[in-house]
Design a protein around this nucleic acid. Sequence first.
DNA 1: AAAAGTATCGGTAACGTTTGCGAACACGTT
DNA 2: AACGTGTTCGCAAACGTTACCGATACTTTT
Lengths: 389, 389
Amino acid sequence: MIKCVKCEQVDSIMKAGYVRGKQRYLCKTCNYYFTLSEKDLSSPSAIKRKRHQTTIIDIAKSLGVSNSTVSRALHGHADINPETRQAVLDKALQLDYQPNQLAYNLVKSKTNTIGMIVPEFHNPFFPNVIIGAHEVLTRAGYNLTIMQSNESYQVEISNTKAMLANRIDGLLISLTQETNNFDHLSVFEKRGIPLVLFNRVCEQINVPKVVVNDFEASFLAVEHLIMNGYERIAHLGGPLNLLVSQERLRGYRAAMEKHGKTIEDHMIIQGMLTQQKARIYGQYLLDLAHRPDAIFAVNDSAAIEIMLMAKEKGISIPDELGVVGFSDNPESAYIGPGLTTVRQPTHEIGRTTADWILQLVDDEDVILPGKRVLKTELIVRGSSRRCGI
Amino acid sequence: MIKCVKCEQVDSIMKAGYVRGKQRYLCKTCNYYFTLSEKDLSSPSAIKRKRHQTTIIDIAKSLGVSNSTVSRALHGHADINPETRQAVLDKALQLDYQPNQLAYNLVKSKTNTIGMIVPEFHNPFFPNVIIGAHEVLTRAGYNLTIMQSNESYQVEISNTKAMLANRIDGLLISLTQETNNFDHLSVFEKRGIPLVLFNRVCEQINVPKVVVNDFEASFLAVEHLIMNGYERIAHLGGPLNLLVSQERLRGYRAAMEKHGKTIEDHMIIQGMLTQQKARIYGQYLLDLAHRPDAIFAVNDSAAIEIMLMAKEKGISIPDELGVVGFSDNPESAYIGPGLTTVRQPTHEIGRTTADWILQLVDDEDVILPGKRVLKTELIVRGSSRRCGI
DNA sequence: AAAAGTATCGGTAACGTTTGCGAACACGTT
DNA sequence: AACGTGTTCGCAAACGTTACCGATACTTTT
């Protein structure tokens, strides 16, 4: 390689034109221009041999036809003599031709790729949604590129930028809990790139959305607790800027009000339910002078955390404390007693979302945005079934 | 009527056959054949308006500089007047310029994307590996494209083809249980595209591999059972064409032999452990005339299935039956009694694999292939701890 | 005064495909 | 012959970027 004559650096050297017929270099680190004398060069061995991929042009040349003919033959277009087509196909096989999707993408302005941005990977929820979406997209011949925003608005923005730069054909996105501004999504509208929101949706932007019946699910869950004789039901909810959290809170309130239960504000806690937070909130609730006799948590990990704490404190479940979670994580079925929870149709969410984006991508006609509401299912287990009632 | 596109004559036009279903005309004066394009006929209104994305050229034009200058300015290259650079940056913002990664990819033959192919999504294992890999790759400025082979050799092949066509910079892959031929992987070597195998690796191909100490883990797991007084230990293993399965079987055998336990062949079952299969095998084992007093299963789902069946049959765990699983799924901690299992460092597997591919991608120098063996941890819970011993 | 260095910019060939339009024939029919 | 019709193929222009190879006009050093 070429070393800077001053700082001996190798990496930061760039060519900087010619001066009187001699190559001139610039070292970016010490900002020094220099040219090399004859003796400095002259090491012809270490030329980086770039691997050549066989292209359409190679096939064309070796067959003595034009590359347009090759292209059409490979794609089964009309206007090609069957013999020629066969010859091209044979030669392609022989030369181990692999089409360059990049060039294709560039000329067609299409990538056959759908992007997906999810806020986190720790709960099984999003991986399961991915399974469903992946299934549909793969069957339709689309690739799926997944990015993770890590619950950060900034990361979400940079993710959407990357998706845009990569010219994905459509985007599936579930927002972070921080996302309150939606300009980075409007860009997709402006560009005519289809967009489907799922799970973590918002009202401020007019695109297709796929959600579950959060309000109804919460309502039924809380009503179920009430039917089992619980009176003082606490709610451990998600961040209130998420629509899902609002809906679930609404459901909680509605059920409580319908059955004439008093809602005590200090028994409603909203926030990001990390494991640590769940423990803190649980501690608070269970140590309350007049503690709740049931807790409706907005995800299963939090609910399970509560159950574990209750056990530590010697509070019996479900007799002294009823617990209901949300999502039906695998562990919820196996903990003792089993955790009553709201099962979400994760695979179906993925499939529905993917189906929708495919319609938008394929059809040029604008399909009216709307909202698909999928049904959840209340899975009743031991944690909320009072034997004495 | 119809004008010749060359000489603008009207009278001397005559029809001259059809080309691809379109009327062909001949101008007799200038002896020129031509057809009419869509835009010549038909109203100019109904033209499908293709959205124009602002490009580097737009910026260059509106600033009166060359596009190479714009390119350099945008990339913070040297050799640009600060004022010019600022002007370019401003204009880019004003015109809402978004770089076209596709064109970049084409000219650089690089996509800044790492591909990952996993056999399944149903166990939390691979999603967790993805989390780790995703973290490392994102930090390094790479995208991650995920495909799923669905345990099918054919799908795996088509996946690798798609990855190749999309010119990913590197591939992370965990093989399907069907994969016995590795030609589709050799292609990557030939192309000089880095490849790292993880978890489901093979010996037939000489590339970096990331695995866990399967042999040792199995050995310790079985030894743990023996130490707890179990004598007749059955093994529920994976498909034997997977190296992991072989290794785990080896570990099982070694531990049994070391402690002088007789290995009964009919107590070793190898195969794909779907839930259904696990039930069938479990049924068989538990109904055996002289049934095993412990079972070492190669994944947690199967182990848990066994535990459930034992409960149904009234076989007490761990007194009458010890159970050990593999992977430490979330539910394993919560089932009663807790399932003793081998925890795999899933995130670390992902991180290690990603780190390795990044090295291979960035450095031109060939790094010798090798094998990284990560440590597992035996998590002892109630399912294998005999109180009476 | 010649030579060398500095600072900024432009022209243009790639990268590998697709595709619209027309050329070049080869027929059959008046 | 002249004309109508069909078949098969080639040319060349995109697609948007990058980077090599310069040019030009100063300033500084030898």
